[in-house]
Amino acid sequence: MKILVPVKRVVDYNIKPRVKADGSGVETAGVKMSMNPFDEIAVEEAVRLREKGAASEVVVVSIGVQQAQDTLRTAMAMGADRAILVLTDESPEPLAVAKVLKTLVEKEGPSLVVLGKQAIDDDMNATGQMLAGLLGWGQGTFASKVDVVDGRVNVSREIDGGTEQVSLTLPAIITADLRLNEPRYASLPNIMKAKKKPLETIPAADLGVDMAPRLTVVSVAEPAERQAGIKVGSATELVEKLRNEAKVI
């Protein structure tokens, strides 16, 4: 079976984002970009499924600007077999992304689509669920364990009070949570090999999907800064402050 893994190029998670002075968004020009950390976990899981013999091919896809090629090369260096870049200058919302992915699913015919649970830039946590809805497939979101058995995929999901097990008919959608796996580092030889793997570029316009945003960003602002407080010398002093000054205990 084939696995499709959508990956997103985002501001590196170690960078403290800066709000643009005009309040139109967050500064991304000249900022270090990386693969969304949850997408690394998704790629890792797909590659492991292929290594276990549960899958025959792993195809990675990204939607965005030309530089998203770097993100796709990283995924191929981790073990993905080939890549598709849907080229657009927009940064489409999850609804549009899900519609684009649906067209690729129909073209590629994967049995499983593995996504990250959320992207760390827009923090939406929506694309996987939306794609599952559009396709009418089952969804195993916030997955911490995935087993493909007899035409089904069994998924352990992280829920608020613990974990839940669900079983889905293939084809299905999985979204990766933190605990699913530990993504591997791409070795230098694999980075070199990844440069030779096929990368197909499709202009977004060719897919006939309406990418117009439904949400207008009115403004983006810095959250209120917290004032740094004081250091106290002892537990006694701390409890006294909490009781008499902050009045929280």
Partner: peptide
């Protein structure tokens, strides 16, 4: 298009939500 993690409701169309790990607050109109 859903609007996740709303922290404040401006009006029936307009909502505030944190992005970038809460390092920015976006006001969006649907």
């Amino acid at each position: 298009q859903p609007i996740p993690d709303v922290v404040s409701i401006v009006d029936a169309q307009t909502f505030v939500r944190p992005i970038y790990a809460g390092n920015a607050l976006a006001t969006v109109r649907s």
